[in-house]
Design a protein around this nucleic acid. Structure first.
Length: 449
RNA sequence: GUGGGUAUAGCGUAGCUGGUUAACGCGUCAGUUUGUGGCACUGAAGACCAUCGGUUCGAAUCCGAUUACCCACCCCA
């Protein structure tokens, strides 16, 4: 395949055989969000570039070198969203949602665009399930949001995930901490890697994030932000831990998680998987108490998270977790001859009106091949129609899982007769969704059978 | 932006140190007589061996460049 146009670097196709993984994850995420009282919001794929510059921050990598900015003739200055929070908050302000009952709880499922070098778990177009909880400064809100994210993963049966939490304080205590970091690292300047020398001047917080072993050794003795939190921030962090304990959620305090988006304050957290390569953060988020005000809304505390769907699916795959089964046809007509085919068309229409998934031969194959096709598409039942059946007024209804055949009378009552004869099988098939979810519940670590 | 790796049919692979019709598995389509799937057997379709250029009597196989993809750095979901 040389000449055809190929998909852009860092994008993915989801083929029918993969799509159930997405359905599973989206379904569970949506159901869980709604269970926690979150409602869906949908926002544009692109926004004015200034929105991201102001909210995400003009010194961040995301804004500086990863934005897909687009322009049409005559107008420019738009950018494909690199994340979901900025647009959501813009929409909240613009639509007056801050006047609704607080807290305002919103979720979204959307694709984001970042011009980065693609690798495992990092794409140029990736998909996020995100939640924003707006209008509460109480640490109970932080804990509840974290519980929601965890619940999604639990419902999916995903184990091997570690919750890391930290507090990066408010602007006041962070300034003090930055200075403390500078004071600590300055004597080690010569030993630091080049990027960290740069960080020492521009963003000392990131020094803690470095992966080089030498730098980590130095950073190990660095002051910890928690020691520099102001009383309010400290109380908030204690409140978060207390609430997590109340919910029985395990966490690790990780002073190194810092986050690369400027709007975060106080609580930051990541759910990290060790099973999916270097890009292990499946879900990341935190509090952004100042963002709404800086974007022109009335001062409102808020927090949120983004969950990377590709990474989530990678983690589920590597853990051997199960996904929902695709819908399969309830019935497939196997026909011989034009008269039978026409009857099948009419009958199929009737069955479909009653909600059944029904197929019949569209290719003109002979009986054996039609049976073969019915098997491949995993049809649960087959009805064979030929001249004999039409003249007898009775056809064979074949259960494809057991191989049993029973008679079914052609005519007006056929749908009902089919419903009766197939009831048990169809019921259990429709129940497979529910039973899968029941199996997920309370089973967080073991791959499902 | 910086490293490293890989590039053979729809997918997964074999083709060793260059030699004539590029192989195998899965998948697809069809056949194994007469109206019934999953198994088995048989057959068919499907690849200018990523691209371009070189070395050579001769290259999928050696060399170079290009491109694409992958992994990692960085950053983050």
């Amino acid at each position: 395949m040389g000449s055809i146009i190929k998909r852009p670097n860092g994008t993915q196709d989801v083929t029918p055989s993969e799509v159930m993984k997405w359905h599973t994850v989206e379904q569970v995420a949506k159901d869980t969000a709604e269970q926690f009282g979150f409602r869906e919001i949908r926002i544009p794929t692109f926004e004015e570039t200034g929105l991201f510059v102001r909210s995400v921050g003009d010194t961040t990598d995301v804004v500086q070198k990863e934005m897909y900015s687009v322009s049409a003739s005559g107008e420019g200055g738009y950018t494909l969203r690199p994340e979901g929070t900025a647009g959501t908050i813009r929409a909240v302000i613009q639509n007056g949602l801050l006047n609704e009952a607080m807290p305002l709880k919103l979720f979204y499922m959307l694709s984001c665009f970042r011009h980065e070098r693609a690798q495992k778990g990092r794409l140029r177009e990736f998909h996020q399930f995100g939640c924003e909880l707006i209008g509460s400064a109480d640490p109970a809100a932080d804990a509840d949001l974290i519980a929601l994210a965890k619940s999604v993963m639990d419902m999916l049966g995903l184990g091997g995930i570690e919750l890391n939490i930290n507090s990066i304080g408010c602007p006041t205590c962070r300034a003090a901490y930055r200075q403390a970091l500078k004071d600590y690292f300055e004597p080690h300047r010569a030993e630091l890697c080049d990027t960290c020398k740069d960080r020492l001047d521009k963003n000392p917080l990131r020094l803690l994030d470095c992966k080089s072993e030498e730098d980590q050794a130095i950073a190990a003795g660095a002051p910890v932000i928690i020691d520099y939190l102001c009383d309010d921030c400290k109380a908030h962090f204690e409140g978060l831990k207390h609430n997590l304990d109340l919910m029985g959620i395990e966490y690790k305090i990780n002073p190194r998680i810092v986050r690369g988006l400027d709007y975060y304050t106080r609580t930051v957290f990541e759910f990290i998987s060790r099973d999916i390569g270097a890009q292990g953060t499946v879900c990341g988020g935190g509090r952004y108490d100042g963002l709404i005000e800086t974007m022109g809304g009335k001062p409102t505390p808020a927090l949120g998270f983004g969950m990377g769907l590709e990474r989530l699916i990678l983690a589920l795959e590597s853990r051997g977790c199960e996904f929902l089964d695709p819908k399969t046809p309830d019935l497939c007509f196997v026909t011989m001859g034009d008269e039978a085919r026409e009857m099948a068309v009419k009958l199929a229409t009737r069955f479909r009106e009653d909600g059944y998934a029904v197929e019949y031969d569209l290719v003109g194959r002979k009986l054996k091949q039609q049976m073969n096709y019915a098997d491949k598409i995993r049809a649960r039942f087959v009805i064979v129609l030929g001249e004999n059946e039409i003249s007898a007024g009775t056809a064979k209804l074949k259960n494809m899982t057991t191989g049993e055949q029973t008679d079914i009378t052609l005519g007006e009552d056929m749908v009902e007769a089919f419903a009766e004869q197939s009831y048990a099988e169809l019921l259990s098939a429709n129940d497979s969704v529910r039973s899968l979810f029941e199996a997920f519940t309370g089973n967080n670590n073991e791959p499902l059978q």
